[in-house]
């Protein structure tokens, strides 16, 4: 029905999809590792009272959310070569360019989620901490952040699920991630089957992501 002719094709397809999935998963995790902490820093910076900090950060968020991620990937990959003067040109590795673009982009989205979470914590929490003598850093890390994390889990899980699917965009700079590999194979054997299987792979991975977030929400449901 899908035009698969025999075992050789099946084995070949599994191998290809496996390597594509590996690339997808690598970009996914590296982006999370970099963009979550960066997002927190950006969130704190964007709500800073000092204009010279919050101004540029707000501009950064505007650009990251206001232009296509696809464009950003292309730009970050090619700009170091085309925009730098002769002698300083850098040939950025595709994979590194992709991770930088994704991290910068997702950090902007995470930052806005963090900011919303931080602002939702009542002022009384800061006041209670302050009269008890906690420093600002202690207050943030011990009192505010744990409550923020509980509140932002649902919107963060949305972003993380989108991130996994967005990794398909990196094929624009020639990275063989899951969807690209499947597409290539689909044209080679003239069958829709590889695309269908790739879809199942994404679904399976996001099912795991969903499970992980549900677990985390459950773990934090011990208080209101």
């Amino acid at each position: 029905m899908f035009g698969i002719t025999g075992w050789t094709d099946t084995i070949r397809l599994s191998g290809l999809l496996y390597s594509g999935t590996l690339t997808t998963v690598k970009i996914f995790f590296l982006t999370l590792i970099f963009s979550l902490p960066l997002g927190l820093i950006v969130a704190l910076g964007s709500s800073s009272k000092r204009k010279w900090i919050s101004g540029p950060i707000k501009l950064y968020i505007l650009i990251m959310r206001g232009t296509p991620l696809l464009l950003q990937i292309i730009f970050i990959y090619f700009a170091p070569f085309y925009m730098l003067p002769e002698g300083m040109k850098i040939n950025l590795d595709r994979f590194i360019a992709a991770v930088i673009a994704f991290s910068l982009n997702y950090a902007a989205y995470f930052a806005e989620i963090f900011r919303g979470g931080i602002e939702s914590i009542s002022h009384g929490q800061y006041e209670a901490a302050s009269v008890l003598g906690f420093t600002r850093t202690q207050t943030f890390l011990r009192i505010i952040l744990p409550q923020v994390i509980k509140r932002i889990l649902p919107p963060v899980s949305n972003e993380v699920i989108t991130l996994l699917k967005d990794t398909a965009l990196v094929q624009i700079i020639g990275i063989s991630e899951l969807l690209r590999v499947a597409q290539n194979e689909a044209s080679r054997i003239f069958s829709i089957m590889p695309i269908f299987v790739a879809g199942l792979f994404y679904l399976l991975m996001n099912w795991v992501v969903t499970k992980v977030f549900h677990k985390a929400e459950k773990k934090l449901s011990y208080y209101k």
Partner: peptide, 24 residues
């Protein structure tokens, strides 16, 4: 405070001990 401002993510005991331990 009027509305208590307890730390909701800490147990009662930890609400009380957190400052003595980490501030004092």
């Amino acid at each position: 405070f009027q509305n208590f401002n307890l730390f909701p993510h800490f147990s009662v005991l930890r609400n009380i001990t957190e400052a003595p331990i980490h501030v004092a």
